[in-house]
Simulated assay, not measured.
Amino acid sequence: MDTKTLKNCAAALLAVALCGAGHAQILIGQTAGFTGPVAAGVKETTDGARLWLDAVNARGGIAGQQLELVSMDDKFDPKLAAENAQKLAERGAVALFLTRGTPPTEAVLPVLQANRLPLVGPSTGAMVLHQPVQRYVFNVRATYQREAQKAIEHLNTLGITRIALVHADDSFGRDGLEGANKGFAQAKLKPTHVLKADRSKPDYSLLVPPILASDAQAVLWIGSANAVAEGVKAFRAAKSSVRVVTLSNNASQGFVKALGEYSRGVIVTQVYPSERSYAYTMVQEATELAKAKKIMLSPAILEGYAAAKVLVEGLRRAGKNPTRDTLQAALEGMKRYDLGGLEVSFGPDDHTGLDFADLSIVDLEGRFVR
């Protein structure tokens, strides 16, 4: 091979190397129910996360590396969630991100442990992810127990004392039930009814009539968006005006759409400020990025956005070439990180991150109003 050919080969190899370096990626894995009963909320939280991830990539990524979010559909099935998480770990994901729901997230915990894989921003407020501290789980939202307790307290302040409770017959529902019981105890009240509902296919013919017969003024319904929306419709079909309250897992425009003409007046607890609270820098940022993509901001989008900000900050602090171990250390050392009006802190004995809780009501235009 002559000298000219050698030089050409060397130049070609250098070009390939430079091209590869320019496209180096940090792999982030996600398993969530992109189809099934929580699909609408999953889409919105993921859209919110991508607002920030895309903005970071547009600015050059992290230390010249682009962030690649690989999302897999687990259909809200815990077994499939665990399988997806293992596949993502084997692909080399530096973190798992934005899982959805209590049972699926519980199912991935052994995968996190076995692979020393951090999970950032699970979209669930399950107490089991907070206490005792799960070493590899970094929450970016308040617990369901905190939300349910606040919901009961709020109803009591309105003079509503006859309150029924419907909860999904799974770990999520039982978690919310425990928080609601704390609220009832603090208000010195007892629920008119406590009813279990099948997680995927509630039998409304068994749930609605007892609540109507008790003349309950309100019902706290702890379940998926589709289950609660159909419950509201069942009440309205029975000519009942009972107030329906649900938790932040249903704080999405998809839930409002599922409610249709019956959305007005439904109360939804929230774990982030209002998407119109422009005093928060985070809301201002998200609003501008959402406008550019022609996306309407919602509480679910804000949740995904906030989780992405925490993930990116952790990766920035994890060094030039982040690994699972360096990311774990960076997150545990994160103190008073300003999301834009809200501060997030973690430590070896505290992986809660935030404890913000509020309530909203759906207005005539289908917006969440505080």
Rank of each mutant, 00 (worst) to 15 (best):
D198M: 05
K190L: 09
A300D: 06
K87R: 11
Q145C: 00
K43A: 09
A17I: 13
G20W: 15
G333E: 05
A39H: 06
D47G: 04
K188V: 07
V208S: 03
S360N: 10
Q66S: 15
I361E: 08
A300Y: 15
G183Q: 15
R174A: 05
F235Y: 12
L117W: 11
V228I: 09
P202K: 14
P273W: 11
T246Y: 14
V108I: 15
N8P: 00
A63L: 03
A234P: 07
H351W: 08
F138D: 05
R146P: 00
E83A: 15
A148Q: 01
S123L: 04
Q25I: 01
A168D: 11
A234S: 14
G347S: 13
N250G: 05
V133Q: 04
E261Q: 09
L67I: 15
S224V: 01
C9L: 12
I152H: 08
V362W: 09
F235V: 01
A81R: 10
G29M: 05
P348V: 12
S205V: 09
L69N: 04
G33T: 02
Y280S: 01
L297A: 04
H167G: 01
E230L: 14
R91S: 04
H23V: 06
V232I: 13
R59M: 03
K309V: 12
A24D: 12
V194P: 01
L119N: 02
F356V: 00
K293E: 08
S248V: 10
T269V: 09
G353T: 03
I160H: 06
V140L: 12
A286L: 07
G304T: 02
K182E: 14
K291I: 09
V56G: 06
F76A: 14
N250W: 06
Y337F: 14
R324Y: 04
K4H: 13
L354H: 04
Q145L: 01
L354S: 05
M282T: 06
